[in-house]
Amino acid sequence: MGDQAVCALNNIDLHIASGEYVSIMGPSGSGKSTLLNIIGLLDKPNSGRYELDEKLVTNLSETEQAKIRREKIGFVFQSFHLVPRLTAAENIELPLILGGVPPEQRQIRVNEALQAFELKQRALHRPAELSGGQRQRVAIARATIMQPSVILADEPTGNLDHQIGAEVMSLLEDLHHRGTTLIVVTHDRELGGRAHRQIAMRDGKILIDHSDDTG
């Protein structure tokens, strides 16, 4: 109760190299989602700097930030966030439409994505007609269609059973193997443990920042 300001993040100093696979773990309220939102340019820090691709992006205009989200960042959400009235193919096409890609090129790229994520048979189905795993594959296809440099996944397996979750994770890890920076937020230790660099957060602060030697 009350209007007391809450510091979701406090004194964070984080550097993530291009092509890294990072997991951010912590209990709810630890600030991991806020951190992800700031990395994804959905949120602005009250103070401090954020550089993406060695460019300061914290004080860019709304339109410029939208352009960066469109071109450099791919979001994968726990609840998929597919548009219910659009088909799988149309959902995947959305970032291309927003990016002003001409329709013929969109068609080719969407088809490639459907192929790559084994959704060819499901292209014309609406999200309600898809299984959870298929929905998340559509969401990942949508997140990667613009070939972003960073994939931000917020509890990507939170709404999936164990086996499907593992499949989705290996899809994301495939993307990482092809050079995309992958940042996964989770409270699942096992899932977080798969990342080469594990960050643990609590009360808006980074508690542990551990990198595997193999990473």
Partner: peptide
């Protein structure tokens, strides 16, 4: 609307 913004739609869009 939130999703569209997250995947890069501007307010104008």
């Amino acid at each position: 609307i939130g999703l569209l913004k997250a995947i890069g739609a501007t307010s104008i869009d």
